[in-house]
Design a binder for these strands. Structure first.
Lengths: 148, 148
DNA sequence: CTTACTGCAAAAGGTTTGCAATATT
DNA sequence: AATATTGCAAACCTTTTGCAGTAAG
């Protein structure tokens, strides 16, 4: 079994939540489509092929739980739905940003931890303890620039 | 009249939209409560005191227009509603970030343009033309740290 | 065997829209 | 006078919730 899947299972079990079939199916969809930043409805569509009876409400509840357990973070690209991003459980860091193409909607992940200096500065100036950050860059991707 | 208000009026007129009483009232509420990052419903509450008949739909439509005209930007703090942030029309830059206290919900504005270096780097590596960015830092504000 | 979890359907937000009346240019 | 804008109510969409039945530990 995929190493990441195993780690996620552990987080759930170790926190005394039950490893139900439905949760496993949702996790499978999330891991297999990491790049896609799916929203609940899109996960529902995928998951129906595996278990026709799996309900939408169950997915909403699963996703909420996974966020609470630190397995996922929420991502808002302004389309009216919440999208989800798998957290790298090993580094336990949120050190990546998103490039969102305003033309085609593509989301590109950017690994970067260069915000740490800025964070330290902000913490000092504002007496604010930063625990996490979310950074989005909006613009045009390579393909959309070429096709315009 | 407030200089900022005058500038906003100009943007609306110059783009051939009508300077209606309702739009003026909404602008007034936005300018007078710049710090508060109001959502539509909160603006509705404020505005009702000025014009009891001003409808919620009108505010939604005004806010959409103002975003389109670059007068406002949308801000998502994860409470399920869209909040709004006045753009500094003179600098025409989006060079500020938000600190969001996860305990009391307070939003603190941080002036900073240190992301430009990072943006240039990202543009080069990913062939992505960045037009704007949104950056949120989540954590605990001074007061909430002291009261815990 | 206990109680957390699920599925369903209904409800609850927030936001959008159609239409007739109104106000701005 | 022409038409963009408004107010109202209904519609829409995403997300949440109550409850009875089911399954994981």
């Amino acid at each position: 079994m995929n190493q990441l899947v195993k780690e996620i299972y552990d987080v759930i079990s170790n926190n005394d939540y039950k490893l139900t079939n439905q949760r496993k199916i949702v996790i499978d969809a999330l891991v297999k489509n990491q790049e896609d930043h799916l929203n609940c409805d899109e996960i529902y569509d995928l998951v129906k092929n595996v278990d026709k009876n799996l309900g939408l409400a169950t997915i909403y509840r699963s996703l909420k739980l996974f966020v609470q357990l630190g397995i996922l973070t929420e991502l808002n690209i302004g389309d009216g739905s919440i999208r989800y991003d798998l957290v790298d459980l090993n580094t336990n860091s949120h050190n990546h940003h998103h490039l969102i193409c305003k033309s085609c909607g593509k989301i590109i992940e950017v690994k970067d931890d260069s915000l740490e200096t800025l964070e330290k500065e902000i913490e000092k100036i504002y007496d604010f303890k930063i625990e996490n950050h979310k950074c989005k860059f909006m613009g045009l991707c390579k393909e959309c620039i070429e096709n315009s």
